[in-house]
Design a protein around this nucleic acid. Structure first.
Lengths: 195, 195
DNA sequence: ATAATATATATCGACTTGATATATATTGAA
DNA sequence: TTCAATATATATCAAGTCGATATATATTAT
């Protein structure tokens, strides 16, 4: 979803500045499945403003730098709904954690253990944060998002906790045969390209 | 993870052309947690080649266009390992599905049902594809990736199947009061910005 | 026959990120 | 108390990335 639509979506829930829109992606409601940087938010707001999809009110603040508060227009609201009706593009998931884990045999065991422990902490903290909020207080669509997301984190945590020890033991046993460290993974696909 | 490292990772498993590297992200081993386009793969291979991290062999093919087969050098292998030791950047997950679902109240009910059904099919197909492969045949790290990923898809499917009907019934009941269609979500955060 | 898909490399405009610059207030630690 | 870090607030820019497109041919399906 393009940043312009993302801005409209945040503004649908109440007027906000560029800084506050960024927060919605960093910590707020959209943080688990969308993101945008200042470098794309500010230009997007400028274009939305010139197209009449949002209105800007310059708030000359007492002490802090000027705050530009953006508000959705009726046209902007209609445009948001239309964008939501378009067929969704496939999810995009990019993870260094999975990428590094994939090559676990090539890395020092302590490094891998650290990676897993950090991941377990990440899942625990995320679950704690998400269970702060009472699902019953959420609108229907938002509640399903919340429930599905929470399920993913909870089951990921369970899986890692259940398999961590076995996994580490297996890696340790492989480290005991030093000559195999480097060749383990290569063996798998060696004869793929025999044309 | 930058595209250069991703190319080294694919080449670690066997020599490959740019086209074959792209396939590793589209359908192959890395498809669930990494991606790269031709527009970044080809320049990356050129740079890796000039830096001596990969070697290129031009295969003058009989009928098809020339194939440039890239192979990892020792230097490239070392560079890959070093990159894997760097602290992982946070995951990035971007989903139109979650984004649209979040605003379910604003959309025609049939549209939402279609969205959920497509999602359920997507999970089912992904699980089917992933269960084709025998986990026991995979190296340790790769097996944990596979297991954790599969768990996520399976539990997402279960959650959606268990909650779909209740969710749709709830949306339907809200549609019966037409005046509420537009205001449901707005009510939540209306008095946040009362300064 | 002919449309669609697969193999194969390459380029390019448009967009996005991550870092940086600028300026001030508040909070917490030494 | 002083000093560092964090938070509020906008804006820009180099570097990197995507998605589309061009080019050319073989195979598969309709």
């Amino acid at each position: 979803m393009d940043v312009r639509t993302l801005c409209l979506a945040v503004l649908y829930q109440g007027e906000a500045s560029g800084y506050e829109i960024k927060k919605a992606f960093k910590e707020g409601a959209f943080s688990h499945f969308q993101d945008a940087s200042f470098g794309s938010i500010y230009p997007a707001l400028g274009r939305l403003s010139s197209e009449g999809l949002v209105e800007c009110t310059q708030m000359a603040q007492e002490k802090r730098p000027d705050k530009k508060v953006y508000k959705l227009t009726q046209n902007g609201e209609d445009t948001l709904i239309t964008s939501l009706l378009a067929p969704p593009t496939p999810d995009r998931f990019t993870s260094d954690f999975f990428f590094i884990l994939y090559f676990a045999e090539l890395l020092p065991l302590l490094q891998v253990i650290k990676l897993l422990d950090q991941r377990i902490s990440f899942y625990q903290e995320t679950i704690n944060r998400m269970t702060q909020c009472d699902p019953a207080s959420l609108p229907t669509g938002r509640r399903l998002c919340h429930g599905l997301g929470l399920t993913v984190y909870q089951n990921s945590l369970i899986y890692l906790e259940e398999n961590k020890e076995r996994f580490i033991a297996e890696l340790r046993s492989q480290h005991e045969i030093p000559s195999s460290i480097d060749t383990n993974l290569k063996q798998i696909d060696t004869n793929r390209h025999t044309s």
